[in-house]
Amino acid sequence: MNKGVNVCRLCHDGIHDLYDEMQLAKQFSTPEALLADEALQRHFAWVAKKK
């Protein structure tokens, strides 16, 4: 649980809106796992349009 993935603030906030710390540690501990999630893909696409 000491590993982390660097993301921008908007992505970080969106990730935590959808998943708690334990879910992230168990299911989404890599950038690939985050990018594979359909709900997060939609959020990341929205963030990309904002930048």
Rank of each mutant, 00 (worst) to 15 (best):
Y19M: 08
L18E: 14
L18N: 12
T30Y: 00
N6Q: 10
I15E: 08
K26L: 14
S29I: 02
Q23E: 13
L34G: 06
P31S: 01
D20Q: 06
H16G: 06
L24H: 00
P31M: 03
C8K: 08
D20H: 04
L35F: 02
R9L: 15
V7D: 12
Y19A: 05
L10C: 13
A25W: 00
A33V: 06
S29A: 07
D20T: 08
D20N: 15
L10F: 13
T30W: 00
P31C: 00
G14A: 11
H16W: 02
L35Y: 02
L18Y: 07
C11A: 14
V7L: 13
T30L: 02
A33Y: 01
L34P: 11
V7N: 10
C11G: 09
D20A: 05
S29Y: 03
T30P: 07
D17S: 08
S29R: 03
C8T: 15
C11L: 12
D13G: 04
I15Q: 07
V7A: 07
V5T: 14
F28E: 02
Q27K: 11
Y19K: 10
F28P: 09
Q27N: 11
F28L: 07
Q27C: 08
K26A: 12
C11T: 15
I15C: 09
A25T: 08
C8L: 13
E32K: 05
D13A: 11
D20E: 14
L35Q: 06
M22C: 05
P31Q: 01
C8V: 13
P31D: 00
C11M: 13
M22V: 14
A25I: 08
R9N: 15
L10I: 12
G14K: 09
N6C: 07
E32R: 04
E21I: 10
H16S: 04
P31T: 01
F28R: 02
L18Q: 13
R9K: 15
L10W: 10
F28M: 05
D13Y: 01
D17V: 09
C11F: 05
L24T: 01
A25H: 01
P31G: 00
P31Y: 00
D13C: 05
F28C: 03
G14M: 10
V5I: 15
G14R: 09
D17A: 09
V5R: 03
H12K: 14
E32P: 04
C8G: 15
L10E: 15
P31H: 00
V7Q: 10
S29G: 09
D13N: 13
F28N: 03
E32G: 05
H12S: 14
D20P: 14
E21T: 11
E32F: 00
D17R: 10
R9P: 15
C8I: 14
H16Q: 06
N6K: 09
V7G: 11
N6R: 09
A25E: 10
Y19V: 09
A25P: 03
D20W: 01
L35M: 06
F28Q: 02
G14P: 12
T30K: 04
H12N: 14
L24R: 07
Y19R: 07
L18T: 05
P31K: 03
S29V: 02
L24N: 02
L18V: 06
D20L: 06
I15T: 11
D17C: 07
E21F: 00
K26H: 10
E32H: 01
I15H: 06
C11K: 11
T30I: 04
A25M: 03
